[in-house]
């Protein structure tokens, strides 16, 4: 579904991604784990068109997407739910969700809105409220609901558990699993490697802009190396 081949990305003079290659197959949850500043978010931003790689290629559903403007990538079904939620705080919950469906012209937007409200009943309660007044967990749900409104084929999630209480983290992860089971492929970036590995099929470990390990999520969760470096034991 997604094939990233040997991409290099620079922030000015800083070489942020050094020849990263990875792939995601339809129906999977793939997670990228790694320390702060390793380049996880940079990978997602490059996939969604916010950053342009200087070399390498990105194929999505058979199309070359690197170098294309973000709106064309969203249109193809690759949606990025960014780090820090980035909800439009000056707009209501419902307006945020409608913006998620910005490029859609079909008639099912309304029924999808209802589906999002079924998945996140708390958003329904706060429908007309300014999204800036929501709690962190609710904002995360809104950001995910907003991304779902675009009917993504591949959903990129950047640190969905950041800053949330443990109970909420559990809830968010079970929702991610549900989203995946209903047919959406997920590429998940997480610092909470434990949780991420527990729901993912496969994982990549990234260090200072390079993929250093890749494999089955269960096997990686059991490997001593990973336990020591990322799982706190």
């Amino acid at each position: 579904m997604l094939a990233v081949d040997n991409i290099n990305v620079f922030y000015g003079a800083i070489h942020a991604l050094k020849g990263v290659s990875l792939d995601v197959k339809e129906g999977e949850i793939v997670t990228l784990i790694g320390a702060n500043g390793a380049g996880k978010s940079t990978i997602l931003k490059t996939l969604s068109g916010l950053l342009k790689p200087t070399s390498g290629s990105i194929q999505f559903l058979g199309d070359t997407i690197h170098g294309r403007p973000a709106q064309q990538i969203v249109k193809r079904g690759l949606c990025h739910c960014p780090e820090g939620r980035r909800v439009f705080a000056n707009m209501s919950v419902e307006e945020n969700l409608e913006l998620g469906a910005y490029l859609r012209k079909d008639k099912e937007v309304k029924s999808d809105l209802e589906k999002v409200y079924v998945k996140f009943p708390r958003l329904k309660e706060r429908q007309k409220q300014l999204s800036g007044t929501l709690s962190g967990g609710e904002q995360q749900m809104l950001a995910m609901g907003r991304a779902l409104m675009a009917r993504p084929k591949l959903l990129l999630l950047d640190e969905p558990s950041m800053g949330l209480a443990p109970l909420l983290v559990k809830e968010i992860f079970s929702i991610i699993k549900e989203i995946n089971e209903s047919g959406t492929t997920v590429l998940l970036v997480e610092q909470n490697a434990n949780m991420a590995l527990s729901i993912a099929h496969r994982a990549y470990v990234i260090e200072t802009g390079k993929i250093v390990l890749a494999g089955d999520a269960k096997e990686l969760a059991d490997s001593d190396e990973i336990k020591k470096a990322y799982l706190g034991g």
Binding site: S48, G49, L50, A70, Q71, V74, K75, C79, H80, C81, P82, R86, V87, F88, A89, N90, M91, L99, G100, Y102, L103, R146, A150
Partner: peptide
């Protein structure tokens, strides 16, 4: 309104 609040997030909506 979305672009004026957060240009990057607006891009991610396909705007």
């Amino acid at each position: 309104r979305a672009v004026s609040y957060d240009m990057e997030a607006a891009r991610l909506m396909g705007i």
